[in-house]
Every structure is written in structure tokens, then in C-alpha cells.
Design a protein around this nucleic acid. Sequence first.
DNA 1: GAACCATGCGGAGGCTGCCTCCGCTTCCTC
DNA 2: GAGGAAGCGGAGGCAGCCTCCGCATGGTTC
Lengths: 192, 192
Amino acid sequence: MGGETTARPLRADARRNRDRLVAEARAAFEQDGVTASLEDVAARAGVGIGTLYRHFPTREALLEAVLRERFDALGAEARTLLGHARPREALITWAHGFAAAGTTFRGLTAALSATLRDESSALHASCVSMRAAGEALLARAQHSGEIRADLTVIDLSTLVFGVAWAYEQNSGWGPGDLDRLFRLLFDGLTAR
Amino acid sequence: MGGETTARPLRADARRNRDRLVAEARAAFEQDGVTASLEDVAARAGVGIGTLYRHFPTREALLEAVLRERFDALGAEARTLLGHARPREALITWAHGFAAAGTTFRGLTAALSATLRDESSALHASCVSMRAAGEALLARAQHSGEIRADLTVIDLSTLVFGVAWAYEQNSGWGPGDLDRLFRLLFDGLTAR
DNA sequence: GAACCATGCGGAGGCTGCCTCCGCTTCCTC
DNA sequence: GAGGAAGCGGAGGCAGCCTCCGCATGGTTC
């Protein structure tokens, strides 16, 4: 949780470069999706490509730095939702927020999804607290009898990711459409 | 629909090269996913890269050639399902088969999904008859009252693609898991 | 304020993959 | 078997990834 126990503080120029890189990476990811050229990011930040790679050895490390704040906020929101009066609605709200965050940049859902299965990834750790909050929300909704008891966390996150990804593909869609998809997912496609 | 009205027949060597390319592309896609190196495909087939590009100007054109038979078979299956006694089950079966075909190679779901929105794509035409059959299956299931009437074709295909994609991400999963995901999608996550 | 050196910088260069272009070869036809 | 249309091949230009190592610079110490 924000454990920035930097063994030794970065040199002033290094700190400055790092900050610039994160800012420019965010802009580039927003513009070109998660596959944006890293050489381009370095150029925008006015540093050499070597500097980018020293600070962020992988694309995922850079992505993690860009997304960190957003993920922390989502984790906090999830913990708040645990106190929500209606467990089912709380779960849906969480899933919705998660999907919205996951579609900030084109291709992000896929990157996050791959990451969940790769413990060595820099993004993995960032997701852990969110994931834990999701599990707690699911357990509570199941306990209340509002969500089917045979649903596993794996199935839930798989489906939430699937819907988020599918939503991301329809570039013309807005948040209202995502909302509708989640209603369909939770209510089912079968007539009652 | 198999409209191979080849203006003039290919020269013997060209025909041979084309066939080899399709066979090797299938092998490469199976091994490395849809992003397999095309230079590698050409090398495996024993032809120059220029030959590959003349026969298949884009990666999608090659993909289309590899998948054509499979898609035709799926279209036929969908038309058969229109005569199935239980419309809801028919729809689920179709969705299942479609998802299974879409996960033949890693990354195929994403390629197909992008294709649905790009009418100029070579894959697009291949999907049209399948898509039409899907619409007919949906309409029938809704008419019978077994599937909710407010579900649109767009929503259905979005969700089916989403589930197929999510399934594809879990490399350790098998067909039984895909089946379970579809049951969850059709029944809903909400307890009854 | 000078001298030292750990920390950090930059970008050339090697690699892979995409795709085009055009001189050369092969097949088909008459 | 000669001519020409159809097809072939791979060099070459481009973009992006990532590494490596000689050089610069900030921080520290006296």
C-alpha cells in the first residue's frame, strides 16, 4: 500500500526524468493504446531510450507506474462498497468501475488479463488488493443470497474481464452501454 | 458461399505455392497464434516472402483462407440448428461452437472481433453467413419466449465474443469450462 | 570550491518483423 | 520451340524492441 521504501532516493535529474516519462507515457497510451512506441515516449519526454529502459525495464513496469493511482483509488472504492447496504448492487458497481478503469487505454484489458496469471509482472501486485476486495464483495453478495452460490471468483473475474474487453472493442460505445452489458451479465439472457 | 469464380485459373506452380502457404500458415498460427511471423510462414512453405504477399496481400486474407472451411461448416451447423426443437438450447449450442472455433488460434477472437466492424476485411465476408444464422437463431429463441426480448444481436455477439475471448485467456481451461461460462451468461449471475 | 566517483544518461547498433518493388524465371500457348 | 503473360524471390527500406558501454553529472566530502 504505497510502500515507497526507496532504499536510496533518486538523484534529482533521475527523479525529473522518471516523472516526465510517466507523464508522457500516459499521454502516449491514451493516444495510441498500450502498444504505443516506447521510443516515442522517450523522445516526447526528451530522454534517450536507454533512460526509459533503466527506469522501466518492461512495458508493464511503465504501465504500472501510469496506472498506480487509479488502481489504489479503485481498491479504496471497493473497500468502501463493503459497507454498502445492497451487496448485489455493490458488486455490480465494483465490476463496473473496474471495467471502466480497464478500458482507459486501448488494449489495457488484455494486458491486465495476462497479468493476473503472471505473478512476476509489475502490474500483478497492483491488482492484488483490488482483486481481494472483489472477492470480499462477491462473498458478501453470495452470503446475502442475492448472487448464485456456485459462482467462483475465477469465473466472475473472467466474465467481468470478458465484458470489459468486448466493450472496449466497440469504440463507438459509451458508459451507458457498459452498464447495459453488466445488467445482462448479472440478470442473464434467459427470459424469466 | 464457395463462389470460387476464379476469372482465370492459377498457373500450376502458383496453385501449388498457394496450397503450401495455407497449410504452413495453419501450422504456424496453431503454434504461435495469429501474430505468427509471415516471413516464417513463407520460409516453411519454401517460397519467398513476395510470393506470400502476392497471394495474400494482408494477414487477414491468409487467415481467411485458413479458416474458410471451418466457417462454412459453422454456417451449415447454424442453419441445421434452426430446425432444432428447443430454440434456446439451439442458440446456446451455436454460440458455443462459434466460441470454440474462435479460439482455434491464440488471438483469433480479437482478430474476428475487429473484423466484424471492418467491412473491407477479407474475414468479414466469411463471417456474414454465420452472423446471419446467429440472428435467425436469436429471433427464433426470442419468439418462443425462452430468451429475453430486449436482447439485441449486437449485445449478444458482443457478449459471446467477450466470453470466448476471456476463455481464450485462460490457457489451462478446456471445453467444459467454456460450457460453464455460457451457462452463467445465459442464466445470469443473480440467484433466483 | 575542488576533486572524486557512484549514479545516471544517451544513442548506436543488432535484431526481428513488415511490406514493396522490380529484374529474373517459369509455365502455357500457338 | 519461341514468345509473352504470369508468377517468383529476396534485397532493401522502415519501424520498433532492447542492450551495452563510454561519457556526463549531481552529490558529497574535505
